[in-house]
């Protein structure tokens, strides 16, 4: 099953709509609740990142019988140093992002904790792609 969502820059009101929709789909498919939580928390973190840091992007979701693959690809400033961005507490978030309760430098590390496979690729001035997989 393939699903696609569009993420718009700065659109915090709709942040999490893709994750919310994926949550409903996985529940309908009777995926174990603990796994659903891991999937949607990781996807939500990625979605919030794309809204907070980039100029919008796409969320692509593929659900198979044994796993879910998620790709969040944004057009944005990119991440110059991915290893640094993966460190807990490192953040470049703007004050308005922090006002929404995010921007503590925990997004990428939290994605890592919740998924079975994480791959982050980024090109400065072009954008960032976060690929995640969770096995059922």
């Amino acid at each position: 099953m393939h699903q696609e969502y569009t993420v718009i820059e700065g659109d915090f009101v709709n942040a999490g709509k893709a994750s919310s929709s994926v949550k409903k789909t996985l529940k309908q498919l009777n995926v174990e609740p603990a796994i659903v939580k891991r999937v949607v928390v990781a996807l939500y973190e990625a979605e919030v990142n794309a809204i907070a840091h980039a100029y919008g992007g796409k969320v692509l979701v593929d659900i198979d019988s044994d796993k879910i693959k998620m790709v969040v690809a944004d057009k944005g400033p990119g991440i110059p140093d991915i290893a640094l961005a993966m460190q807990e507490g490192y953040s470049t978030a703007r004050p308005e992002v922090r006002d929404m309760g995010f921007g503590a430098g925990m997004g990428l590390p939290n994605m890592q904790k919740n998924v079975d496979k994480l791959n982050v690729t980024s090109e400065v001035g072009v954008g960032t792609t976060v690929e995640m997989e969770v096995n059922f």
């Binding site: 915090f12 942040a15 999490g16 609740p33 939580k37 928390v41 929404m100 309760g101 995010f102």
Partner: peptide, 15 residues
């Protein structure tokens, strides 16, 4: 004390 729609959305994601 964070009172906006993201509070609710975050809770939904975190169950």
């Amino acid at each position: 004390g964070l009172c906006n729609v993201q509070t609710i959305r975050t809770c939904d994601m975190a169950t």
